[in-house]
């Protein structure tokens, strides 16, 4: 493998139902920073059926070039044709870096592609940098420059590791949604658009889609919320979430929850914050009746302001809370809602 042949930062622009997922813009945003360090460009790889019209949006978020792989076989996500699309793009264009969102789709697609083209893949990265590997010179070992350094949590968020892929290309990573910043959208900016179709012939690896069942959800995506009012096991029961919904409504926030709440069946999984749920970083995170298991902390500790209410003063949530209140949430929360209602009413 001649590593020098591999150039450019590529990102998988995930779309579902011909709507580009926010992760695509986040990857372009981070890709721009990496590309600036390397003196190269960002290419978005758009895969689907009838998706060419989405390329302009990717350009407006910063993609210098968009490669469109458009084929009826790609209408709904399936591992095999999507893996074929991406590995064909990689074989033809030889990117230096290839980023994929660590979404349910990306974490299925990434490993299949990396295994097909024989390169390394680092999962669920929360930080990406360009730097040297090894980080410091080691006698008798070549120090390579301009490597992608991929940082990720492991052991349930207890440790963090920085990983490199010095001898294989592309350097591949899946990137956790909600962590990288997208660039401001610039209306009217155009990119070079290139169509590429490697041919799709169904084989034994193509699975058949019998049915697509969409969850009916009217809730705001908790990853987009500026204020989250999050409840845990300490809420006691599903009905008691009413007091959180009242608080959220008054302060303009959204209700989320911990894993225990999902496991108990009180709230759906798309409201779950944490290692196996979503990573959030709102301006304000209320952790109410949440003890703060390490997996939960991993999903919310980057929030700007964390306010915790818990009756157990040894709860680990207090280790990350900016403001911790030891007390009875059933008394504090309704009173807080009323007080805020009065405060905000007097302002208007």
């Amino acid at each position: 493998m001649n590593l020098e042949e591999y150039k450019g930062v590529y990102v998988f622009a995930q779309q579902v139902d011909n709507i580009v997922n926010s992760i695509a813009f986040e990857l372009i945003g981070k890709g721009k920073d990496l590309a600036a360090d390397l003196g190269t460009e960002v290419t978005a790889v758009l895969v689907g059926s009838g998706v060419k019209g989405l390329a302009d949006e990717l350009a407006e978020y910063g993609a210098d070039r968009v490669i469109v792989v458009d084929d009826p076989e790609l209408k709904e996500y399936r591992t095999e044709p999507y893996a074929h699309a991406l590995s064909s793009v990689i074989e033809k264009y030889k990117p230096e870096i290839f980023l994929v969102g660590a979404t349910a789709i990306g974490r299925d697609l990434g490993p299949r592609v990396s295994a097909r083209i024989h390169t390394g893949l680092t999962a669920d990265c929360t930080q990406l940098d360009i730097g040297d590997f090894p980080l410091n010179p080691v006698p008798g070992k070549e120090q390579k420059h301009n490597q992608l350094l991929m940082t990720r949590p492991a052991f349930g968020g207890n440790t963090i590791a920085t990983i490199a892929c010095p001898d294989f290309r592309p350097q591949m990573a899946t990137v956790r949604p909600g962590v990288m910043q997208k660039k401001e959208r610039q209306a009217g900016v155009k990119a070079n658009i290139e169509e590429f179709n490697p041919g799709f012939t169904p084989n034994h690896n193509y699975v058949e889609i019998l049915e697509v069942v969409k969850a009916v959800s009217e809730t705001v995506d908790i990853m987009d919320a500026k204020i989250l009012v999050s409840g845990g096991r300490g809420m006691g029961n599903a009905e008691n979430f009413k007091i959180l919904e009242d608080l959220a409504e008054v302060i303009g926030g959204t209700v989320s929850c911990s894993r225990a709440v999902v496991d108990a069946g009180w709230k759906p999984k798309d409201l779950q914050v944490g290692q196996t749920g979503k990573t959030v970083r709102p301006n304000v995170y209320f952790a109410i009746g949440i003890s703060g298991a390490i997996q939960h902390l991993a999903g919310m500790e980057e929030s700007d302001i964390i306010i915790a209410i818990n009756k157990d003063d040894t709860a680990p949530i207090f280790d990350v809370a900016d403001y911790g209140l030891v007390g009875d949430l059933n008394k504090i929360v309704p009173a807080l809602t009323e007080k805020l209602r009065a405060e905000l009413a007097s302002k208007n």
Binding site: L121, P153, G157, A161, E301, A321
Partner: peptide, 15 residues
């Protein structure tokens, strides 16, 4: 293909 450049325990922001 992947190699560890650095591993450390997570530094949490203090209480």
């Amino acid at each position: 293909p992947t190699q560890i450049a650095k591993a450390s325990d997570k530094v949490r922001k203090g209480a």
